[in-house]
Design a protein around this nucleic acid. Structure first.
Lengths: 237, 237
DNA sequence: TTCTTTTACTTGTCTATACAAGTGCAAATA
DNA sequence: TATTTGCACTTGTATAGACAAGTAAAAGAA
C-alpha cells in the first residue's frame, strides 16, 4: 500500500514554510502574490489561498488587502513551551539540560491530575525528570510521563540538550497536535527550593499539560516548574 | 458612512458559535451537514466551509470525513488564558465582574513594557481596571489599555459581566488574531494583597499581553493578575 | 511643485461544479 | 447467522471564474 500523497495546498504550505524558516524570506518581506504562486505551481487561487490561510494560522504571515502577504518574524507556538520555546526562543547555545532521573519504566495510576485510560494504565509509562539551565542558572524543572507504547529503544536514547518534541517527531512520527494545560503560581516546596537554589516563599510557575498527538488516543504528560524571576516566559500566540 | 456588513461566512460563524456557547448544540452533537447549512442559509459549500474552518480553528468543532462536524466541549484559547477565557472556560454563571476603574481616556507612554508607536501615543488610550470574582472569590485583576481609535460610545458601554472580546468582536468587528505575552509568577504586592485578600508572599500569576487585531496596526494591551490557589487556569491549546 | 485622479495590482468574498474518500447502515450473500 | 457488498450520506480536494475593495505608484491637473 503506497503512502498517500499530500494534497497540493499542503505541499505549497510546506514549501513556503521552509523558505521562511531557512531565511530565504525574511521578516517584512512580501511573499509572491497569489496569482504568481498560482502560475508558478500550476494551481488555482482557492488552492493557493488555502495554503496561505494555514500560514496565517501558524503566525508565519499576515495578509493585507491590496498589499500582499507579509512575512512575520516569529511564528506561533504550541501552548506555553514555545512561549519562548525552551529551546527555540532563548537560543540553544545557552540552554543546557541536566537529567535528574533517567528515563525508566514505572507503573502509574494518574498523570498530574489528568485522567488516563485502561490501555495506557496497563502499559506502564516512561518516566523522566530533567533540569534545564540558561547560562548555568536553573530555570525549568520538568517531569515527563510517556505511555510505554511501541517506542523502541526510547529509554536508551540520550536527552541531553535535545528536544523531546524533535525526537518524538523524527524517530517515532509523533506530532503534538494540541492538548490541555493547567497553570498555577505556587510557592517553592523543598525539592524545588533545592533545584532552583531559591528561598522559601519564592514564587514559581507550574504548568501541568497533556499533549495530544497525531497517533489516535496517544497522549503524554508533563509537569513543568519554572523560575520566572530572571527569565520571564515570553512568546507569540 | 454606513457600517460595513459582515461577510456571510462570518455571520454563519457567529450564529453557530452562539448556538454552541448557549448550549443549543452540546459536546458530542453533530452540527447540520454542510449541505444542510447551505440550504438553510442560502449559501454555497465553500462559504459554509469557511465558517466551519473558523470554528475548527477556534476549537469549537472537529470534523471527520464521512461523519460530520462534532461539537467540542471547551474551545481552544488564544495563548495561555483561554481568552474566550475568563468567561467561557469557568462558566459564566458564577463569574462576576467588578469595575475598579471605569473606562476613561488617559495619555500613555508605554504599555506594560510593550512598545507603542507614535500614532497610538498621540491618540491616547482607554484605561480600565476590573476585578473578577468566581463564586464571590476574587480571582482575576486586570488592567486594560485600548488605543482611543474610532470606537464610538466605547467608554459608555457596560462591562459588567460581559466579555471585552465579545464586545470588540460584535460591535466593532475587531478580532484578536494573535499577539505576544510575558508570563511570570510573582509574590503579591500591597495592592494585589488587598484586592485578593491574601497574605504577603502569596504566589500570584501575572500575564502581560499585547493583542493584535484584524485592524491593521491596532493592538491593545492587558495586564492580568491571577490568584491560582483555588482556581488554576485551564485551557486547551 | 503639489495635489488629485487614474490605473494596475493586490487580497477579500462568493458562486457553481466536479470528483475523491471516509462512515455507517441496510441489503444481499455465503 | 455471520460476513460482505453496495448505497447514501458525510467531509476533503480542486477547478474556473466573477466582482468587490484596499494599496501604491504613475499619470494628470492645479
Amino acid at each position: 500500500m503506497a503512502v498517500k500523497e499530500a494534497p497540493s495546498y499542503r505541499k505549497l504550505y510546506e514549501k513556503l514554510r521552509t523558505l521562511m524558516e531557512d531565511g530565504t524570506y525574511q521578516r517584512g518581506d512580501l511573499l509572491p502574490s497569489e496569482n504568481e504562486l498560482c502560475a508558478a505551481h500550476h494551481l488555482t487561487r482557492p488552492t493557493v489561498r488555502k495554503a496561505l490561510d494555514m500560514l496565517v494560522n501558524d503566525g508565519f504571515i499576515l495578509r493585507h488587502q491590496g498589499l500582499g502577504s507579509i512575512v512575520q518574524g516569529q511564528p506561533k507556538g504550541i501552548g506555553i513551551l514555545s512561549l519562548t520555546g525552551t529551546t527555540s526562543a532563548i537560543g540553544q547555545d545557552n540552554l543546557t539540560t541536566r537529567i535528574i532521573v533517567k528515563p525508566k519504566i514505572i507503573s502509574w495510576e494518574q498523570a498530574f491530575g489528568f485522567e488516563i485510560n485502561e490501555k495506557e494504565k496497563s502499559m506502564g509509562c516512561i518516566y523522566m525528570e530533567r533540569l534545564r539551565l540558561i547560562n548555568d542558572l536553573p530555570v525549568f524543572y520538568d517531569i515527563t510521563m510517556i505511555p510505554n507504547l511501541n517506542l523502541p529503544r526510547f529509554t536508551s536514547r540520550t536527552f541531553e540538550n535535545r528536544s523531546l518534541f524533535e525526537i518524538l517527531r523524527k524517530h517515532y512520527q509523533l506530532e503534538v497536535k494540541g492538548g490541555e494545560q493547567k497553570i498555577q503560581a505556587i510557592t517553592a516546596d523543598e525539592r524545588i527550593q533545592k533545584h532552583f537554589a531559591v528561598k522559601k516563599n519564592h514564587a514559581i510557575l507550574r504548568v501541568d499539560r497533556r499533549m495530544e498527538t497525531n497517533r489516535v488516543g496517544f497522549s503524554f504528560f508533563s509537569q513543568i516548574y519554572c523560575n520566572t524571576s530572571d527569565y520571564s516566559l515570553t512568546g507569540r500566540f
